[in-house]
C-alpha cells in the first residue's frame, strides 16, 4: 500500500523530445505499469491501469502524478531565462532506491573518489561548513554556501577552480543544483536530476541542464554528464541496503552530510517513504 503523500507528488516519466504515438513509452511508476504517448490530437497522455494520470510538461520532461496533485510542479525560473541552453541528457537506469539516487546528487564529499580528477581530486577533500535549511514557504530542502575545489568543474572549464554550489530538493525524487558558471561570473549553471521511481529499488535518472555555454557541442555536454552518472551508478548499485534508511543508527553521517540529514528528515516528516527503509534491519 503506497501512502497518499507519495501518490500525490509529481514524478518524471519521459523526455518530451522522445514521445511517440501509442503505445509510446511503456514503463513503470511506483511499481505500476504506465504508457506515455501522444494521442491523435497530439496531446500527451500518461495512461495507467485505472485511467489517465495528471500530467505536466516542464523542463524537457513529462511529469505525472498518480494521485491527486498536492501542489503544482516546482518552478525552475532559470528554464525561462534568456541566453540559457537547455540540455536533455537522456536517461540512466540504476538498480537502487530513487531516494539514494537523489541523496548521492546532493553529496559533494564523494567527488575526489568517484569523479576523480574531474569534479574533485585528492588532497582537496575537505568539505567546509555550509548552510542547510528546510524552507517552509516552498517546502524545499536547500543547502547554500557549499564550496569545493574542482579540477574540471564543467565541460567548458579550462582548469581547476573553487566551485560554489547551492543544492535544492524540489520534489521527493527531483533535485536542482546551482553551481559557479565557468563562462559567466554573474550567473549560476543549473543542473538537475529528475528521478523516475520504477520500483522502490529501481529507478531511471534523467539529468537536465540549463547552462550558459554557447560553444561546447551538445554531444560533448551530454557525454560529460553521462560519464559522471555512470561513475555514480557504480556506487549506487553497491550500497547495502538498496533502500534508503530513514531511521538513524544504521548509517553514520558527519558534518559534510548535513544536506543528506535534512533530506532524510524531510522525507520522513512528509511520509515520503517509497524507497525508504523505516525499521533498522
Amino acid at each position: 500500500m503506497i501512502p497518499a503523500a507519495v501518490l500525490n507528488e509529481w514524478y518524471p516519466v519521459a523526455m518530451i523530445a522522445q514521445l511517440a504515438a501509442w503505445p509510446g513509452r511503456q514503463t513503470l511508476l511506483l511499481g505500476s505499469e504506465i504508457n506515455v504517448f501522444r494521442d491523435a490530437a497530439g496531446a500527451v497522455v500518461v495512461q495507467g491501469a485505472d485511467g489517465p494520470l495528471a500530467v505536466t510538461l516542464a523542463y524537457g520532461h513529462v511529469w505525472a502524478c498518480p494521485g491527486v496533485p498536492a501542489h503544482p510542479l516546482f518552478p525552475i525560473p532559470e528554464a525561462d531565462q534568456p541566453g540559457r541552453r537547455l540540455v536533455d541528457c537522456g536517461v540512466v537506469r540504476v538498480k537502487c532506491s530513487p531516494l539514494r539516487a537523489v541523496e548521492n546528487f546532493l553529496d559533494i564529499a564523494h567527488f575526489p573518489f568517484v569523479h576523480t580528477d574531474v569534479l574533485g581530486a585528492e588532497p582537496h577533500t575537505e568539505v567546509g561548513r555550509y548552510e542547510v535549511q528546510i524552507r517552509e514557504d516552498s517546502d524545499e530542502v536547500w543547502a547554500t554556501k557549499v564550496h569545493f575545489y574542482q579540477p574540471q568543474a564543467a565541460k567548458s572549464a579550462a582548469g581547476g577552480i573553487v566551485t560554489e554550489y547551492m543544492y535544492r530538493v524540489a520534489a521527493p525524487t527531483a533535485s536542482v543544483l546551482y553551481k559557479t558558471c565557468p563562462n559567466n561570473a554573474d550567473e549560476w549553471d543549473v543542473i538537475a536530476i529528475f528521478v523516475q521511481p520504477l520500483t522502490e529499488e529501481l529507478c531511471e535518472v534523467w539529468p537536465w541542464m540549463a547552462l550558459f555555454d554557447d560553444t561546447t557541442p551538445q554531444a560533448d555536454l551530454i557525454q560529460f554528464q553521462q560519464m559522471i552518472f555512470l561513475q555514480d551508478r557504480s556506487i549506487l548499485e553497491n550500497q547495502i541496503p538498496r533502500l534508503l534508511p530513514l531511521d538513524p543508527g544504521k548509517e553514520i553521517p558527519t558534518q559534510a552530510d548535513l544536506t543528506s540529514i535534512a533530506y532524510r528528515r524531510w522525507l520522513k516528516r512528509k511520509g515520503l517513504t517509497y524507497g525508504a527503509q523505516m525499521v533498522a534491519a
Binding site: 573518489f113 568517484v114 553497491n238 550500497q239 547495502i240 548509517e251 553514520i252 553521517p253 558527519t254
Partner: peptide, 26 residues
C-alpha cells in the same frame, strides 16, 4: 562488506599501506 557511513561495499575500496579505504568517500 559495508562502510558504516553510507553502506557502500568495502570490497570496491582501495588499499593504501596498512589501510583499506571506501571508494565512495575515502
Amino acid at each position: 562488506d559495508r562502510c558504516p557511513h553510507r553502506g557502500m561495499r568495502l570490497s570496491h575500496g582501495f588499499v593504501r599501506g596498512e589501510t583499506l579505504s571506501c571508494i565512495y568517500h575515502g
